[in-house]
């Protein structure tokens, strides 16, 4: 689930508020989005992919973590890099050639 909105990185663009398919965020009074409905988070990582300044961290667990992790100890926004979004990066789609599945005799898996 979404665990962190970095106050130091956030530029108050509201992108995460806009793109979250389950409406987890609310616009904060100071511009930094608030995780208002964490239990609605479906752990799809889309907010992290769309954040232009790598300010978000989605933990892989589908339940809230007992303690919010420290910002300095998590890979903020790393999903965005993995899919090749952002200036100067090669889109991940361009490189997405997977292995052939065992026993299928088929071609490479492409997603």
């Amino acid at each position: 689930m979404i665990e962190i909105v970095s106050r130091t990185r956030c530029v108050a663009c509201d992108k995460c508020v806009e793109v979250c398919p389950t409406d987890v965020f609310t616009r904060g009074e100071d511009g930094v989005p608030v995780i208002a409905r964490q239990s609605d988070c479906q752990t799809c990582f889309m907010c992290e992919a769309y954040c232009p300044v790598d300010a978000l961290f989605v933990a892989p667990q589908v339940h809230p973590l007992p303690e919010r992790p420290e910002e300095s100890r998590v890979p903020l926004g790393a999903y965005r890099e993995r899919i090749g979004w952002g200036r100067g990066r090669v889109p991940g789609a361009r490189l997405a050639i997977g292995p052939a599945l065992p026993g299928t005799g088929g071609g490479p898996l492409v997603s």
Partner: peptide
């Protein structure tokens, strides 16, 4: 090993889970 590397390219979010755990 070659298949492992290809899997990462084909489905990056599959490995997000493991890397973060």
């Amino acid at each position: 090993p070659a298949e492992r590397a290809a899997m990462r390219l084909a489905q990056p979010n599959f490995f997000l889970t493991f890397d973060r755990l």
